[in-house]
Design a protein around this nucleic acid. Sequence first.
DNA 1: ATAAATGGTATCGAATCGAAACCAAGCTGA
DNA 2: TCAGCTTGGTTTCGATTCGATACCATTTAT
Lengths: 186, 186
Amino acid sequence: MTPTFFDYVERLNSLLRSWQRDDVQVSTVPAVQLSALRYLSICNHYSDTVTGVTEYLGLTKGTVSQSLKALEERQWLVKRLDPKDKRIVHLRPTQTGLALIQRLATLQVLENALAQLGAEAEQQLTALLHELLTQIQQQESRKSFGICSSCRFHQHRDGQPFCGLTRELLPGDAIELICREHQAPA
Amino acid sequence: MTPTFFDYVERLNSLLRSWQRDDVQVSTVPAVQLSALRYLSICNHYSDTVTGVTEYLGLTKGTVSQSLKALEERQWLVKRLDPKDKRIVHLRPTQTGLALIQRLATLQVLENALAQLGAEAEQQLTALLHELLTQIQQQESRKSFGICSSCRFHQHRDGQPFCGLTRELLPGDAIELICREHQAPA
DNA sequence: ATAAATGGTATCGAATCGAAACCAAGCTGA
DNA sequence: TCAGCTTGGTTTCGATTCGATACCATTTAT
């Protein structure tokens, strides 16, 4: 057997984990917490909840709830109750939390390697991965977590972005974030 | 912030984990064990050791040693002492173990998605990932785990594949497996 | 020949993660 | 309307994992 796509993804992930462990500030932080925080930094206001994180990471509610509690204690995120539905808790990374995620995302090694590949190849790679994930989502009943503006419910009202599902006007920065209710156009 | 390459890799990995948990037979098996077994199915006879797995997964010796013990107990791999150096233990997946890995690697969802993408796109994707990993390896002092036949030490003697580093003839199936001593040509 | 290095294992403890039980808020439907 | 169901979240508990450390055996170096 020779390495496949599957293997490369696994290897890449091993390396990412490995780098995280090398980072003194991050090494003590469990991977799930980092993933959760990262998700919260790229999801919109319909998706920044415990359930959102749960679906995205494919873990159980309990586990996620605990991880989020830990993140809150580290002051990397804050919780806010939903004004309409009092069951719902919104999670927002703090400045410190965002800075940490930023540091991780711009791992020097990875950045360099991507740069070496060339801008075109990088874009191609990202596009292919994006397409692959889209394909997967279409087969699965699983949530797609696509980008808001690419959703079949995405509309405009009075020149403002508008969600046809929730029937609400959308804040300007929401439309390029990912959403747990996302559905690809037919 | 909108999703980056980093995010896609993480998401893909979440999905892989998620699928593994859905599989009744595999769900109870820790991810590290699966990764280790998978590695052992694609590495050559210089790399099928505890240290090999340790370097590949970026974990500590102790952790890996335990995981391998568990794999042995499940009868998914067998240990064999090296005839020359009595410290070294070689690890070989059993038929059962290989079958399991095979099942995992051919996840229907992933297969389908890749098929939808088209053979050309899939090959491109794999090639890009391969290139990216090669780039990473060149920057890092880390082991590259490249494919034997692409190594700078790869030679031929009397029409047989030959390793210039160990100065040994190589078994025919070794040359398309990955090796922890691999070095890219200058 | 002694010391150092290498390959692996064993022990221990902290901390993660899943399962299940639980609570509160919203929804449904006669 | 109000009893039951569903949904969003938290808590508790226990098994399991993983890293740190110490340790042993074999090989290599001085």
